[in-house]
Amino acid sequence: MMTIEDPMNKKQAIPELKVHHKSAKKQELRSTIFAYVVLIALALLWLYPIMWIVLHSFRVEFRDGILIGTVVSHYIPKGFGLNNFVNLFQNTLFPRWFLNTLFVATVSFILSTIMTLSVAYVMSKIKFRQRKLFLNIAIIVGLFPGFMSMIAIYYILKALGLTETLFALILVYSAGSGLGFYVAKGFFDIIPNSLIESARIDGATNLIIFTKIVLPISKPIIIYTALLAFTGPWMDFIFARVILGETNRHLHTVAVGLYYMVHGSQYADGNQFTMFAAGSLIVAVPIVTLFLMMQRYYIEGVTAGAVKG
């Protein structure tokens, strides 16, 4: 697969290495400086929008006594304050939206995590007849564009009498979550089968093996799965918007509510960007903190998933 030895190089490279030893050091210094310059520039580029949102959320500028809510062209605000946050809590349903999202996220992350790990474990460690078939179906089924079938999902939920409750959203988020078993399966695959077999010889049932032996050593993947399941509802807005309806403002999640602050319909008072920024900050801070705290697990999961394919 990989050719590493090239006889031509071998002959020429050795004297080169010696001759350029000193300048090589200099070159390395130069390339290090270059790397730092690139990194700093890129970091600024990546932090620029984030900083911009933060600054906007605290921006308090007035025009003839009216708080300016739209985007302004100067980067650094001319005045700071908490007016946007106060507005957000007093004049919008944001607190309600926040609790809605928190509720949906909590319940659906518990359900999703249980379901995802269950499926992954079964697909990885339990041998049964139709296993391969299930595996193939699971991979194909997950590919149909989800929101395409939203209209049908809406009516199924309605037939179940659930359309105007947050429970509908919880079902939508967690029902299919088992299909996202792939990364977790990759993790379970690494656990040696011998571990499980020796437990079985000791008389442990499959339930005991799963809960007492496999899960305790699977902390990284549990956290990875839970992290994604918990943050999902905070980020999705298409499903939340269609399933819970645009008119039910008290049933919005934060994403839907905040979206309408920027893109109000033609008949609504749109473009309250500073309030959007304030709301975004309130949503983003816990989520980002959670992410950074769990960074290690996230990276492990992502890398494993990618390499496994």
Partner: peptide, 23 residues
């Protein structure tokens, strides 16, 4: 055990993925 573990997902996927997709 696999039946127990897979059932919720199968039910969920049948109602909220496969059924709507067929529809």
């Amino acid at each position: 055990f696999h039946v127990l573990l897979l059932t919720p997902t199968i039910i969920g996927v049948l109602t909220f993925t496969i059924l709507p997709t067929l529809f």
